Lab assay of single mutants.
Amino acid sequence: GSLMYASIFGNVSAIIQRLYSGTARYHTQMLRVREFIRFHQIPNPLRQRLEEYFQHAWSYTNGIDMNAVLKGFPECLQADICLHLNRSLLQHCKPFRGATKGCLRALAMKFKTTHAPPGDTLVHAGDLLTALYFISRGSIEILRGDVVVAILGKNDIFGEPLNLYARPGKSNGDVRALTYCDLHKIHRDDLLEVLDMYPEFSDHFWSSLEITFNLRDTNMIPGSPGSTELEGGFSRQRKRKLSFRRRTDKDTEQPGEVSALGPGRAGAGPSSRGRPGGPWGESPSSGPSSPESSEDEGPGRSSSPLRLVPFSSPRPPGEPPGGEPLMEDCEKSSDTCNPLSGAFSGVSNIFSFWGDSRGRQYQELPRCPAPTPSLLNIPLSSPGRRPRGDVESRLDALQRQLNRLETRLSADMATVLQLLQRQMTLVPPAYSAVTTPGPGPTSTSPLLPVSPLPTLTLDSLSQVSQFMACEELPPGAPELPQEGPTRRLSLPGQLGALTSQPLHRHGSDPGS
């Protein structure tokens, strides 16, 4: 009898404990919600809404976190579960008819179910419309201010047509639940991603989709105040780019002037030289400038040598048109050559190039014969006009050509200096018209024969001689050997007369 009593008592207590286990969990969670309300000092109306929603959600799901349970299964099984949970929507909604099984599984994985109690606001006026909503159960109302403009029910759709707008718009009203509602919502990016994977279904979906109420604000059109608020930074940046392009296009129409201050000032006329910023005076940081632009901040801005204009002085008759350009485009679109090309026009420029290279940067340069637009006047290309890779490749080509020119210049200078040193070592320090008596009659020769300089066969020296023939050397430049009979510069000019005159010897006659 005691054994029977113990078994009955144990079973009854276990049954009672299981009955009250759900209630215990409910009270535990309710205590957490109330502690949250007390800690954050939530006001009474919002506090009442929180408690009511918790009670309804507990009775609806029995305190089970559906998302946590669903995430515990593998992905393939999750797709089947989501397809079952959203079967009513996918079967009865017209846009989803005719979709393949794979497309429906992908869509079912992207849908999220939302449960809303009465009085809950789903979308506020001015919120971004980031999702498309399908009503599965219940009814909602749409308000503009305090005026109800629409009441939607089961199988209705609200949001915005995503295929017509590249960016999400703003809501033009509040969406509030009238009863307990079940909503299926899919985010904008998720829907577009699935439709991109199934393009054959995309056309059918957009053609058959009928949005019951379009929440997009109709005033959000390009150029409206609301649109400016939504895309303020983007609009200002776009206007700045367009104004920069218009100014650079105007600059290219004036090829007669070359400016070292950047493309923003290349198009300024002579009357605007004294102004601080020219056409860019209202925004000094709008356009890029070269490193020399920092010198323009000092006094005497109108007389600054940074602004270059072609000189009108005539060229000498024998002067060549100019050196070879550094870039391939210089032959086609440049009416002034790079300062480095002028360094190779003569030997005198070679000796004085490194010492006063900055001073020569603004000297007169030889002109190319074609009066085409200036290379320095070409505006900086924006990322939309020329690819970045093209600019980098041009810079690399320019750097390689500069290296080759520097190597060639160093070799030419070394060769010229070597020839000058050899000339100085071969010439005796001094010569006299009267020579010392020699031991015999073989001493009648006034000077030792001097062998002429070897013929220069280097390509670089031939180019130097060509430049010497075309360029007029300055007075202080050293002379180079030329073709024809060679003669030492330090010898007297009348050596031929010395050989014809008898030598005057000093000596005593033994017979006297």
Score class of each variant (00 low, 15 high):
residue 171 S to W: 01
residue 145 G to R: 09
residue 149 V to G: 02
residue 373 P to V: 09
residue 229 E to W: 13
residue 180 Y to Q: 06
residue 509 D to A: 09
residue 372 T to S: 10
residue 391 V to F: 15
residue 462 S to V: 12
residue 359 G to T: 10
residue 402 L to W: 04
residue 449 P to L: 08
residue 492 P to T: 11
residue 433 A to K: 07
residue 334 S to A: 04
residue 475 P to M: 08
residue 257 E to R: 08
residue 322 G to H: 04
residue 459 D to N: 13
residue 126 G to W: 01
residue 401 Q to V: 13
residue 348 S to W: 04
residue 398 L to P: 02
residue 234 F to A: 12
residue 476 G to F: 15
residue 144 R to H: 09
residue 186 I to P: 01
residue 434 V to E: 13
residue 222 P to I: 10
residue 243 S to V: 12
residue 460 S to C: 09
residue 230 L to K: 13
residue 370 A to F: 09
residue 214 N to E: 02
residue 224 S to G: 09
residue 408 R to P: 02
residue 272 S to T: 12
residue 240 R to T: 11
residue 203 D to S: 11
residue 368 C to F: 06
residue 161 P to Q: 06
residue 510 P to Q: 09
residue 480 L to V: 10
residue 448 L to K: 10
residue 206 W to V: 09
residue 465 S to L: 06
residue 416 V to W: 01
residue 467 F to Q: 14
residue 415 T to V: 09
residue 141 E to C: 07
residue 256 G to S: 11
residue 178 L to Y: 06
residue 511 G to V: 15
residue 332 K to A: 12
residue 305 P to Y: 13
residue 169 G to N: 03
residue 315 R to S: 09
residue 219 N to P: 15
residue 419 L to V: 10
residue 379 P to G: 11
residue 322 G to L: 14
residue 143 L to M: 09
residue 301 R to K: 05
residue 450 V to W: 11
residue 205 F to L: 06
residue 203 D to Q: 05
residue 239 K to I: 09
residue 349 N to D: 10
residue 462 S to L: 11
residue 397 A to L: 08
residue 436 T to F: 10
residue 376 L to H: 12
residue 129 L to G: 02
residue 382 S to V: 14
residue 408 R to A: 06
residue 362 Y to R: 11
residue 126 G to Q: 03
residue 304 S to I: 03
residue 206 W to A: 04
residue 158 F to E: 02
residue 432 S to D: 09
residue 183 L to M: 08
residue 235 S to V: 12
residue 362 Y to S: 12
residue 443 S to N: 13
residue 364 E to V: 07
residue 470 C to Q: 08
residue 204 H to D: 11
residue 302 S to H: 12
residue 360 R to P: 08
residue 362 Y to T: 09
residue 296 D to G: 08
residue 291 P to F: 15
residue 500 S to I: 12
residue 501 Q to I: 07
residue 204 H to F: 07
residue 507 G to Q: 12
residue 242 L to E: 12
residue 260 A to R: 09
residue 230 L to G: 09
residue 164 L to G: 12
residue 251 D to R: 08
residue 258 V to A: 14
residue 361 Q to A: 12
residue 360 R to H: 15
residue 467 F to C: 08
residue 281 G to E: 14
residue 239 K to E: 11
residue 430 A to K: 11
residue 336 T to K: 06
residue 352 S to P: 10
residue 250 K to I: 09
residue 137 R to K: 13
residue 235 S to P: 10
residue 460 S to T: 08
residue 168 P to E: 05
residue 221 I to Q: 09
residue 402 L to P: 01
residue 340 L to M: 10
residue 259 S to A: 10
residue 476 G to M: 15
residue 394 R to A: 09
residue 329 D to L: 14
residue 494 Q to Y: 09
residue 147 V to F: 10
residue 197 M to E: 09
residue 188 R to A: 08
residue 227 S to C: 10
residue 319 E to I: 13
residue 132 L to Q: 01
residue 176 R to Y: 03
residue 172 N to G: 10
residue 433 A to T: 08
residue 434 V to T: 09
residue 315 R to Q: 09
residue 139 S to W: 08
residue 321 P to E: 10
residue 214 N to W: 01
residue 198 Y to A: 03
residue 183 L to K: 01
residue 405 L to H: 04
residue 491 L to R: 12
residue 411 A to T: 04
residue 241 K to R: 09
residue 176 R to T: 06
residue 451 S to V: 09
residue 225 P to K: 11
residue 242 L to A: 11
residue 458 L to R: 06
residue 458 L to K: 13
residue 411 A to C: 05
residue 131 A to S: 12
residue 416 V to P: 04
residue 329 D to G: 12
residue 169 G to F: 03
residue 505 R to H: 09
residue 413 M to N: 11
residue 302 S to N: 13
residue 219 N to C: 13
residue 314 P to I: 13
residue 290 S to H: 04
residue 332 K to D: 11
residue 493 G to R: 07
residue 185 K to E: 11
residue 252 T to E: 11
residue 184 H to L: 07
residue 464 V to S: 07
residue 400 R to K: 11
residue 345 S to D: 11
residue 394 R to K: 13
residue 312 S to I: 13
residue 165 Y to Q: 07
residue 425 T to R: 08
residue 417 L to T: 05
